[in-house]
Design a protein around this nucleic acid. Sequence first.
DNA 1: GTATTGCATATTGTCAACAATTGGCAAAGA
DNA 2: TCTTTGCCAATTGTTGACAATATGCAATAC
Lengths: 233, 233
Amino acid sequence: MIERSPMETSEALDVLRTSSLSKVVQAEIEKIILSGTFGPGEKLNEKTLADQLGVSRGPVREAFQGLHARGLVEMIPNRGVFVQKISRHDAVAIYDVRAGLFGTACRLLAERITSDQAAELHALIAQMDVAGKRRDLDAYFPLNIAFHTAIVTGTDNRILAETYFGLVSRLQLFRARGLVHGGGFESSNIEHRAIVAALDARDPHAAFEAGFAHVQAGKARILASGDPPPGRT
Amino acid sequence: MIERSPMETSEALDVLRTSSLSKVVQAEIEKIILSGTFGPGEKLNEKTLADQLGVSRGPVREAFQGLHARGLVEMIPNRGVFVQKISRHDAVAIYDVRAGLFGTACRLLAERITSDQAAELHALIAQMDVAGKRRDLDAYFPLNIAFHTAIVTGTDNRILAETYFGLVSRLQLFRARGLVHGGGFESSNIEHRAIVAALDARDPHAAFEAGFAHVQAGKARILASGDPPPGRT
DNA sequence: GTATTGCATATTGTCAACAATTGGCAAAGA
DNA sequence: TCTTTGCCAATTGTTGACAATATGCAATAC
């Protein structure tokens, strides 16, 4: 048997390797939910979804269990599953946990950050500055996400990353209804600088505080832009 | 229709209300896994489990999805599901996240702790002191859990509690093989005092540090007692 | 006119059967 | 003796059918 380089493993094959139908279905339903097609509280019909995806109800039900464990849907026995409704109170709770988790990521990263990683963060901040000055939200947003992602994944802690991104997903559920909001990303980048400064100084203590404060400020920005549960465009 | 007091709702009925078979099965399998009956890496056979629980394979498969999302089992397509193996590296990662989460709980609690809550914590510490002096591990252990639980649930943050206890479950997986370890619970209670002191002072900053440090110390205690993956009685 | 009861429909919960894949074992070949 | 090939049993993946439960509507009683 010829030893093949791992690079040759086509993505399609790899997908088949790690995913049974339920996993594909789960990813698909998650995409649908997070895209906001269904709106919080809306019911997900098993058969309808199964038919749409061209599979039987079994895999759909299995996918539901995974989505439920991740807090994306609510399951009521003999009634069905519904897109999880995130109350304002819940959103605050999630933000608080996310703040603690992101602060922790900053703290852990401060103890092990490499110069390459630091350079990447500095570069992202510079780019965000440019986008910010141009008021270019479409450019700023992905950079912002990249910044947070770089910090969280930079800790090389898979559990932390999974948990963090899980919370982010649930938050996306909260502001699924529009609300791109972009309010005050000038201050946001100032906070970014504070984080990187603490990281550069290898100061875990300050890094946590800066990371925690940044997410809390984000929470305040979102909540301030007020959105009572059902729409108000 | 007579309006019944919510108190009358028998627990049995409530169970039926919130749980389909899959949920019961999931809880049952989780109990089996955490009891250590199966050992990390061991395979869980669908049909065998289904027969043992007196149900069909469907609910078992659904339960597996939930357990997978919670990180308790590993699923390999066309091969089956296995009790999740927690490497030393993973355990460290989980402990770090748990530390951040527990520290966050302390921080959040510091901002809202009531005198009743503080009194409860003081009482638990006193009891732990007694148990500690008597070297009574069987008494100390549940008190220790109660202390942590009181802090985490005291924040009234459901997301935080769910996430935290999820991590604790996964850690139980790591030390499922015996390892009651009890090493140095004298120092442990000293750390508890530091946490409560910060809470009494309503100092979020210090509370986080104390909580974070406490879990990290616990991590060090566990890891120091060294346990290479496969047993060593 | 309002509330209640009973039925028809739709949807979920569970199961058992079928299809597909895997791993092990024995036989054949080098 | 070691490797390879081809089968067989076991297990997983998926499906469609059946049972149980909830929802909506109409008819009836008050």
